[in-house]
Design a binder for these strands. Structure first.
Length: 302
RNA sequence: GGCCAGGUAGCUCAGUCGGUAGAGCAGAGGACUGAAAAUCCUUGUGUCGGCGGUUCAAUUCCGUCUCUGGCCA
């Protein structure tokens, strides 16, 4: 059988999940998550994970299966994705990969650099070093080792990652990039179609506001509170939109009255970044009403 | 009514010992290969509350009015 994948991408709150379900039902496909927060079992409310109603409408994979304090990565996502398509007998095609996380979509399409997992202790060591001596020293080490690096001197996170790769394997990120261009091993082996869902800014903002209100009503604060009680305050996913604001509020750093606005504002910024990411991908066919892409989908699946 | 503290960028505030101003946040744009809903980069002309006065020159000093907060009556 000819296996095909449809990507459904776009900013938060535009209706990606709804389109995905529609496609899955119409063509008996399976929905696969590519949203960096919906992987987590403990982050359902604030990530707008599919409801139990949604889950009944079509098979969903890679949702809500990673437990705190485990942290998901793009590499782990690739691993899980390939494991899914190789071992899941019931998996039906087309696959509808849905998510607003451009980085993960890219990982699927193009693969990741071939870097083996790095020991957590080394990561912590480098993190501590940077915290202690500032990132200038770390950046000097990086630029001396890899003069081609395009990491910015202020980008602590990327400096840290580059140093991990250096110290663990003596790899230069700039060389990995070149190598990966010839390497087809990790590229998605299926035909693909990319559909983007987006709405006008005002409509999207209104959707976001409704969504935030719903999250708060559905118990976002309780969801976060129970994670804090388990001692996961520093768990990276709790720095994501909505969760961060809820955490700050529960920790008494901010006030409850401004919470919804703070979440809305962060979500707007998220949308902006998602749009910036997807904008450069010329292959995406954009729609605001589903109908305009239904022909393209039909054609693609034929 | 009296006293005090304030009124400076959309918001919170710095500052100018007199030469027409700058941070953070927001907004706008961008980058992005194992935390990515993260991380980072670029981008700030606004009657410096109004009106008068002093001065070559006032947002900065003086007077007055006005608004906000606090205290005293």
């Amino acid at each position: 059988m000819n296996k095909k994948v449809i990507f459904v991408v776009g900013p938060t709150g535009a209706g990606k999940s709804r389109l995905a379900i529609e496609i899955a039902r119409k063509y008996n496909g399976s929905i696969v998550n590519a949203d960096s927060i919906q992987f987590y079992e403990d982050l359902k409310i604030g990530s707008a994970s599919p409801s139990s109603e949604d889950l009944k409408q079509a098979p969903h994979y890679l949702y809500s299966y990673v437990k705190a304090p485990l942290e998901m990565t793009a590499g782990a996502f690739l691993r899980d994705f390939y494991q899914l398509i190789e071992t899941e007998k019931k998996l039906s095609f087309p696959l509808i990969v849905v998510g607003g996380t451009g980085f993960y979509i890219q990982a699927l399409e193009k693969g990741m650099y071939n870097v083996p997992p790095i020991d957590a202790s080394l990561k912590i060591e480098i993190e501590e070093e940077i915290k202690l001596h500032g990132n200038e020293k770390a950046y000097k080490e990086l630029i001396a080792f890899d003069p081609q690096t395009k990491v910015h001197p202020n980008d602590t996170y990327r400096i840290g990652r580059a140093l991990e790769v250096k110290r663990a394997f003596n790899f230069k990120m700039s060389e990995l990039k070149e190598q990966s261009e010839q390497d087809t091993k990790y590229k998605l082996p299926f035909a693909q179609l990319k559909v983007g869902v987006d709405l006008e800014k005002d409509v999207l903002k209104a959707n976001i506001q409704k969504r935030t209100t719903k999250m708060l009503n559905d118990g976002l604060l309780d969801e976060v509170k129970s994670l804090l009680e388990k001692g996961y305050a520093d768990w990276a996913p709790l720095n994501s939109v909505g969760y961060f604001e809820a955490k700050e509020c529960l920790q008494g750093k901010t006030d409850r009255t401004g919470l919804a606005d703070a979440i809305n504002q962060s979500t707007y910024k998220l949308i902006k970044k998602q749009r910036t990411w997807f904008k450069r991908d010329q292959e995406i066919q954009w729609t605001d009403n589903f109908l305009s892409v239904s022909e393209a989908i039909k054609h693609f699946l034929n």
